[in-house]
């Protein structure tokens, strides 16, 4: 049991780290800005899941695959595909409803923390 958990954690660490390293490679070699990196990884998640591949990575690495932004793309595509089995309405809304928690959390926490905290000047 303990060994199994440790092995899972190792998988999470390696897969999550590897995805971030790919992003860093893109930053180093292509001068792509952070905003575009996020969009690229998100779309990569959507595309990989819509051909059915990202699910394997999620099953393999758990949070290592869902915590990076491509996991968000995976969630959107997954919701849309599941919805498409039911009706056109669900096909269109499935993506956003499965990602609803993430978007809501970002907006609500974002607004609350922006009210509480203030931008600070940087020293280095």
């Amino acid at each position: 049991m303990v060994l199994e958990v440790l092995f899972t954690l190792l998988k999470v660490f390696v897969v999550g780290g590897a995805i971030c390293t790919i992003a860093q490679l893109l930053i180093n070699y292509t001068k792509i800005t952070a905003g575009k990196i996020l969009v690229i990884f998100l779309l990569a998640g959507v595309v990989l899941q819509s051909v059915g591949l990202y699910q394997y990575l999620v099953d393999f690495a758990g949070a290592g695959a869902t915590v990076p932004i491509c996991g968000f793309g995976y969630l959107l595509a997954d919701g849309a595909i599941k919805g498409a089995k039911i009706s056109l309405f669900k096909a269109v809304t499935g993506g956003i409803s499965s990602a609803a928690m993430g978007i809501t959390a970002a907006i609500v926490f974002g607004y609350i923390f922006a009210l509480i905290f203030k931008s600070r000047s940087k020293r280095n």
Binding site: A34, L42, F72, A77, I81, A84, A99, A114
Partner: peptide, 27 residues
Amino acid sequence: MFVVAGPIIVFGIASSVLVGILYFIGF
């Protein structure tokens, strides 16, 4: 709020709708 993150929401939702519709037609 969405000056930087806006594109993620836009592309994310738009692409999920596209995937949903394609799969719907496919099914």
